[in-house]
């Protein structure tokens, strides 16, 4: 199947009512999605559009809201689809992608401990890189107090 970035976006638009989207270059497309649709979208992408490889999950802190950023791509073509989902800082919960992409597990653990986005359905949401006593400080948030730390 010959997927192009634009085609993918159009399909997403039809099926999931995605509104905000753009084509940045032939190989990079971008879309903002509703956080409760992420699992359905991932299932659709991997089953029907051959987007079978999750490249990374990042989180970002935008003041009042946190954003989960997914880079989904494929082994057969070079299109990287960036999906952004906004979650409120007071209750940052989003569905985990582990049922669709096995390798989401560690990316989600990392985003959880560094930014505090909690992934519902992740089998083991334990700290990965931080020592246990630093859990809950969320160092990558912009209002984190412990940086710089000249001790």
């Amino acid at each position: 199947m010959n997927t192009t970035g634009e085609l993918t976006l159009n399909m997403l638009k039809e099926k999931f009512q995605v509104t905000e989207m753009r084509v940045e270059s032939p190989n990079r497309v971008w879309a903002r999605i509703a956080p409760d649709k992420i699992l359905a979208i991932a299932k659709f992408l991997s089953n029907e559009l051959e987007f079978d490889h999750l490249s990374s999950i990042a989180g970002a802190d935008y003041g009042e809201a946190l954003e989960a950023v997914y880079q989904i791509t494929a082994y057969s073509h070079g299109i990287v689809l960036t999906l952004k989902a906004k979650v409120p800082k007071s209750n940052p919960v989003i569905d985990s992608l582990t049922p669709v992409y096995w390798n989401a597990a560690w990316y989600e653990r990392e985003a959880y401990e560094l930014l505090g986005i909690s992934f519902r359905g992740n089998p083991n949401l334990a700290p990965l890189v931080l020592p246990a006593e630093m859990m809950g400080e969320y160092p990558l948030r912009k209002d984190y107090k412990g940086y710089p730390n000249p001790t």
């Binding site: 700290p127 990965l128 931080l130 990558l140 984190y144 940086y147």
Partner: peptide, 10 residues
Amino acid sequence: MGFIHKGIEK
């Protein structure tokens, strides 16, 4: 993991 986590992203 995390024994040499240096916080590069920060």
